[in-house]
Design a protein around this nucleic acid. Structure first.
Lengths: 343, 343
DNA sequence: TTGTAAGCGTTATCAC
DNA sequence: GTGATAACGCTTACAA
């Protein structure tokens, strides 16, 4: 049997192609009888409308793009992206959309732009991080393609975004360390120029202020979300700040690097030093020692982003929404009370 | 300026739409003069043909699907998938294809099948693992949609596949341990019923046989590629086989789990116990201690898979190719010579 | 070498 | 409630 199309179905059901189209699209104004006949044929032959033809006729593809930057292998490999993407993907499938997952790199920016912005006709785009340049955002907006950002970006108040409450997350982590008696605490943060970092730093400091403890600007470092960065910074600090007893890392990957530096310097965790991460990656429970971390609902972020996007595809007028999800401190084995430091 | 289409370009360039089409598609039989005129307009207005319309006319979408199973979060989060996908994605973009990344789960199988097999018209599909059921493969084959498997599957000799030389990889790992003097070596493997596992086990055993050493069937376990599995099995073995001095894990994730079990039991690595992983994940160098592992060209596997797929989309006749890439032993800090075991 | 015209499989508009 | 018919934007014989 050859591939079915709407005309063949119409013929088999003894109706016109318009009736078939109406049935398929759940339009009103079709008699129960006709609907029956059509559905029978549809089921019998498992007919599905050709989405390409439909897209051409409706000017909407039911495809959305997910854009992230092609950062180094290390960060790529941490599982955060897969989980975020999974959340997006499953929500989209549930709502009848299909997803393109693209990595944005400077070397491929051109090809990608051509595809994304000109040839392909996406119904919407989710940008997973800031490296996705202004250019992209502007071009997309020009074409009136709805966008959702994962991670708030104050530069685009009119674009919907989803993020975790970064201030709270960092505050909880710092508070936990303070309650364990730590006073000299370092903080290693990721991406500069990103609101996320700003908020995490603020939350971190606020916890100390609220506890009436001084904070040392010098022991706050901003680099990148990589193991490498955590490793290097921690190595430096071990020499520079021998009195430091705990560390807050703005990602679990940073914490991994820091943990390794500590291990190599024979500083046992949590006996002599405490470490808190951020993200709650699936692997964090298998670090040595299992990492205390601020878990974010990564899958949920993806899910919400997809929801916002599809909603705004369906009704353009709505105001921009900026969602904040709550992170949660997960206490494991990398933190413990300070030793030999009576008040 | 309204959105351009082929007719408007034709008008602006004072030629017919077919000439424009020929220029766009690099067909011969168009005068240099006409080509010039068309190109000028194309560049001036940055015209790109609508890929949807083109797909409808040519019956090919220039889109391929990548299918993997939605395994547990842990395995998802290990970075292997992202890297594999990245390889596929970038090769596809270079060759003008666009990629859908889909997770196959039993709960969503229906929606996905409808999409993949009926509504959407993919030019080809790459299956990343075996959980992608027979059903899918058969349906795809029925529609004459080219497929490439990542990981050989003897059940489908007629389908192209890419894999790493699993026998060699495991052999190298075992040989390394043997050369360090280890004689009681356990092996934890992943997925059952998969050729990959069979070959890794064979390679593992062969190294011992070649060294004239006995192998103990009991200390070979086959479970899943998860930290959890490595953790549990190692925990059991610590009690059961106190004489064991080394372990080969069929994935870095399994090794992570084993490392944690060892740590919790205060068995220091590599002083008292050696561990070798498999995969060479980006994170493996940040484990504690940094993991000796059999590195596979994960990105390269993806790249090759995409190449094979696009090749077979373009010329259907070719015989099935089964590529084997070479893995490479990367020696780090989790392996050392056995202690207190003279001969 | 160029242009005309017939698809590709839908949706959408309008008479009926 | 139904059925022609004209889009949608492109490719591709075929004729000129």
């Amino acid at each position: 049997m050859d591939r079915l199309n709407i005309d063949k179905v119409a013929k088999l059901a003894h109706v016109s192609r318009s009736v078939v189209s109406r049935v398929i699209n759940n339009h009103p104004n079709v008699s129960e009888e006709a609907r029956q006949r059509v559905m029978e044929v549809v089921e019998k032959y498992n007919y599905r409308p050709n989405s390409v033809a439909r897209s051409l006729a409706t000017r909407s593809t039911y495809q959305i793009g997910v854009l992230t930057s092609r950062i180094g292998e290390e960060s790529l490999g941490n599982g955060y992206w897969s989980l975020l993407y999974l959340g997006i993907f499953e929500e989209c499938i549930r709502r009848g959309y299909y997803v393109h997952f693209s990595f944005y790199s400077s070397t491929m920016a051109d090809e990608l732009h051509q595809y994304l912005l000109n040839e392909h006709h996406l119904d919407g785009v989710i940008c997973l991080n800031e490296e996705v340049t202004d250019f992209t955002v502007k071009k997309l907006a020009e074409k009136e393609i709805p966008i959702v950002l994962v991670g708030h970006n104050p530069a685009y108040p009119e674009i919907c975004s989803v993020d975790v409450n970064n201030y709270d997350g960092a505050y909880k982590a710092a508070k936990h360390l303070i309650e364990l008696g730590h006073k000299q605490v370092g903080g290693i943060f990721g991406d500069q120029n990103v609101q996320e970092t700003e908020h995490r730093i603020k939350g971190f400091k606020a916890a100390f202020e609220d506890a009436g403890l001084p904070t040392n600007e010098e022991s706050i470092s901003v680099g990148s979300y990589s193991q490498r960065d955590g490793y290097r910074t921690m190595n430096r600090w071990i020499k520079k700040y021998p009195e430091m007893t705990a560390l807050f890392c703005a990602s679990d990957t940073i914490a991994m690097g820091a943990l390794l530096a500590l291990y190599e310097n024979k500083i046992t965790v949590p006996d002599k030093f405490s470490v808190v991460g951020f993200d709650g990656l699936p692997i964090s429970r298998y670090l040595i020692p299992p990492l205390t971390t601020v878990a974010q609902p990564t899958y949920g972020k993806g899910e919400k982003a997809a929801q916002l996007l599809i909603d705004s595809i369906n009704n353009r007028e709505k105001d921009a929404v900026h969602l904040n999800l709550e992170p949660k401190l997960v206490i494991r084995k990398s933190t413990a009370p300070v030793k030999n430091q009576g008040a």
